[in-house]
């Protein structure tokens, strides 16, 4: 029973790395940009959750904050990212790294350096207890939200005309261009979705993690591990990687080494990269070879 709890708990961590990782992967596969500022948008989501939540309540914050972060993502895409789609990847790495630092400092200037307090709303508190099995209700809800988002994104990409163009653009942007379809407006939507998902992760996790300006750095590394294990640009690769990472964390913890559960996922990444450098389901990335 303890093992089940730990695995469930690992899967929850995995599902939030996944929300961040999917956005990273989408923006990379369509635009060729590794967005190091993704964690900073997660932090903005958490801060907006508090700003909005204090005035309009938790539910309003859950719906409004991710949209606001997504809109901010579109602005960043239109003003900055789109200038770097065809450029050397090193340039966009520098750009987004710088952007992450700017956002962190702006948050510090507006909200101050000490963490802000924010709690789970009263109606979502409590735990499920079935015999020996025990799990907080809020975490169960977090898991449901993450699963819904992944399912929604999958439907959008697989079952809609929009998704068809995006998938075609990922596979062969030149051919899409030759067919007379401009990918630029699609990129704006992808930025909205990808960055909005990071914002959503921030909103959902704000009640259970310290909300401070540098919080983005705490989640982005693990999200990158998920993307790298899954393979940059692969939807299912990233999803599978998130599950594997989650189960690994759970099993290592259940074996009695919770303090090594974080280290275990890096070891996992190392092993995957040794055997399969492009990740589980990753495309060969011509521009990096």
């Amino acid at each position: 029973m303890l093992l089940a709890q730990h695995i469930l708990n690992g899967l929850l961590a995995g599902s939030y790395y996944l929300l961040i990782a999917l956005g990273l992967s989408l923006i990379f596969s369509l635009g060729g940009i590794v967005n190091l500022a993704h964690g900073a948008f997660y932090a903005i989501g958490a801060y907006l959750a508090i700003t909005i939540g204090q005035r309009l309540g938790f539910t309003a914050a859950v719906f409004m904050a991710p949209v606001a972060v997504g809109v901010l993502g579109v602005v960043v895409e239109r003003l900055l990212l789109r200038r770097f789609y065809k450029a050397d990847p090193a340039l966009s790495l520098l750009l987004t790294f710088g952007l992450a630092m700017v956002i962190e400092q702006v948050l510090r200037m507006i909200y101050g350096a000490p963490p802000l307090s924010w709690a789970i709303p009263q109606e979502l508190r409590g735990q499920f207890v079935v015999g020996d099995f025990f799990y907080p209700r809020y975490r169960a809800m977090l898991m449901a939200v993450a699963v819904l988002c992944v399912a929604g994104l999958w439907v959008l990409l697989q079952r809609t005309p929009f998704g068809r163009v995006v998938r075609a653009g990922v596979q062969n942007p030149d051919m899409v261009g030759a067919l007379g379809i401009s990918l630029e407006p699609y990129m704006a939507t992808i930025a909205f979705l990808g960055i909005g998902l990071a914002g959503l992760a921030g909103v959902m996790l704000a009640p259970i993690f310290a909300v401070h300006p540098a919080m983005g750095g705490e989640i982005i590394t693990a999200a990158f591990v998920v993307v790298v294990i899954g393979g940059l640009g692969s939807f299912w690769g990233v999803v599978i990687a998130a599950v594997i990472v989650g189960v690994t964390k759970g099993v290592v913890t259940a074996a009695g080494y919770p303090q090594y559960s974080e280290a275990a996922i890096y070891l996992l990444m190392l092993l995957v990269l040794l055997v399969r450098p492009r990740g589980l389901l990753g495309e060969r990335i011509v521009r990096f070879e």
């Binding site: 303890l2 708990n9 961590a13 025990f134 975490r139 310290a210 964390k249 919770p258 303090q259």
Partner: peptide
């Protein structure tokens, strides 16, 4: 008596242990 790395943010595995 558990040592916790300074970059750990998710205490849930330890909380499950404490509960047990």
């Amino acid at each position: 008596d558990k040592l916790v790395p300074t970059d750990v943010t998710d205490f849930s595995p330890l909380l499950l242990e404490i509960r047990n």
